[in-house]
Simulated scan of single mutants.
Amino acid sequence: MKKCHIAYLACTAALLGTGLGAAPSVAAHTVRLVKPGQSIQKAVDAAEPGDTVLLTHGVYHESVTLSTPGLTLRGMGRRTVLEPAADAAQTAGAAKAAGAAADACAAGGNGICVVGTKNHRVEDVTVAALTVSGHTRNGVYATETDRLTVRNVTAVKNGVWGIAQEASVRGVFRGNTARDNGDAGLFLANSVKEEQGATDTDGTVVERNRLEGNRIGVTVRRLRNLTVAHNHLTGNCAAVFVVGDENKPKAGLVTVRDNRIARNNKSCPKTARLDALQGSGIVLTGAEDSLITHNVIEDNVGTSPLSGGIVLFKSFVGTTSDRNRITDNDLRGNSPADLVNTDTAGKGNTFEGNSCRASQPAGLC
């Protein structure tokens, strides 16, 4: 008991030193300190609901799976780094030591996995104050979660998504940096493997993140009831995508507001699912009843069919965008135009109070 108490006090002091532990801890909750060379997964597996696994500065060559409700996995800032194991032997050894869940996470090419089930979502997990880098698929990947919080995480040069979540509700993604990831910096979806209608996120929030150099800054795919606000997006091929398709209900009820979206002019080639991208600010395709407001969108320039400041585009399976409101945005220097509506079959879309110079068709400014 004395040893545990000393370890707890040491961890609390470390938290206070980083400014992360100003609030008093609940006495029943344990802080489990992990240093480079020690197994993060073993500490996670030993943790009880409400515990914190605290990672010191340094590089960890490991993948980690979290499925305990109320668990916090926290580093001490960007210098706490999770990278893939250096070689196959190291990966196999780490997976054997950590167990099947971590093995599956690593085999999937992910850095951190937060995993619930369809019948039992994992609740109140937090991932904070660390870097995930160089994983072949995703830096942080979550599925079947409720009230997941990802904050102050840096996701860099991961093969697909920097931070991703599917089949989840009430998530909070705040203060993260996602840079130079292969697809989206932040990717939120109903399901990546199943064809189904858009699902309600019960108010998921994506705010105050910096998203730079990715294929797409933020992708919101087949979801409803979600807010993307106060983010800075630059240097991506496209900044924000709100994507729907022919399934019912349609994607929509998404609010995109108060973001700064500038010079997303990286060039990305065509894929099997999407045309070539360059110079796209905010794109709505197959979405309904969404609000795009009070964004500053400037100097997004490209020759893709999806280029422009704010673009309404009929989905590639022919689904229209309907009843979306584009209001009070500040647009300048976007090409081929500040406002672009190629979804001529869409119904009830409105453009009001925007500051802009050019639109396609004319008259939207």
Results as ranks from 00 to 15, higher is better:
325 R>F: 06
168 S>L: 00
23 A>G: 06
41 Q>K: 13
70 G>K: 03
59 V>N: 06
22 A>I: 12
168 S>Q: 04
235 G>M: 02
80 T>R: 08
364 L>A: 04
120 H>T: 12
153 V>Y: 02
306 L>N: 01
235 G>T: 03
292 I>W: 15
88 A>Y: 07
69 P>Y: 12
242 V>R: 00
108 G>P: 06
114 V>C: 00
86 A>P: 01
239 A>T: 10
358 A>H: 10
28 A>S: 15
287 A>K: 03
156 V>G: 01
281 G>P: 05
363 G>A: 07
140 V>T: 01
331 L>V: 11
320 T>V: 08
171 G>Y: 01
133 S>W: 01
196 Q>L: 14
141 Y>E: 04
167 A>F: 00
35 K>C: 07
200 D>Y: 13
155 A>N: 00
14 A>H: 09
300 N>W: 15
121 R>C: 04
300 N>L: 13
205 V>D: 03
229 A>N: 05
256 V>M: 11
203 G>S: 04
106 A>M: 06
46 A>E: 13
260 R>F: 09
222 R>D: 15
48 E>V: 11
213 G>Q: 13
289 D>M: 15
216 I>G: 01
114 V>E: 03
141 Y>F: 07
258 D>W: 08
120 H>L: 11
307 S>F: 14
98 A>P: 07
260 R>A: 09
209 N>M: 05
227 T>G: 00
299 D>K: 12
287 A>D: 15
313 F>P: 00
85 A>H: 10
272 A>F: 02
75 G>M: 03
212 E>V: 13
138 N>D: 15
97 A>K: 11
347 K>H: 14
52 T>I: 13
72 T>I: 09
110 N>M: 12
63 S>D: 06
250 K>Q: 14
315 S>V: 06
309 G>A: 12
180 D>F: 10
219 T>H: 04
284 L>Q: 11
4 C>N: 13
161 W>K: 05
329 N>S: 10
264 N>K: 03
281 G>T: 02
335 S>L: 14
295 N>H: 06
289 D>T: 15
40 I>Y: 01
83 E>F: 11
292 I>E: 13
332 R>T: 02
72 T>V: 15
255 T>H: 14
144 E>K: 00
32 R>T: 08
112 I>L: 08
16 L>G: 10
296 V>I: 14
48 E>M: 14
124 D>E: 09
215 R>C: 00
193 K>M: 05
107 A>N: 14
50 G>F: 07
144 E>M: 00
104 A>N: 02
103 D>R: 11
340 V>Q: 05
157 K>M: 07
231 N>K: 13
150 V>K: 00
100 A>N: 04
196 Q>H: 12
280 S>M: 01
234 T>N: 01
147 R>K: 13
285 T>I: 09
353 G>A: 03
347 K>F: 05
52 T>P: 03
117 T>G: 11
37 G>V: 07
145 T>A: 10
325 R>N: 08
48 E>N: 14
275 D>H: 13
166 E>Y: 00
262 A>V: 15
169 V>E: 02
329 N>M: 09
271 T>I: 04
161 W>M: 09
3 K>Y: 08
310 I>A: 02
116 G>S: 11
67 S>P: 06
101 A>G: 07
47 A>D: 04
276 A>L: 05
210 R>Q: 14
29 H>C: 09
196 Q>I: 09
72 T>P: 05
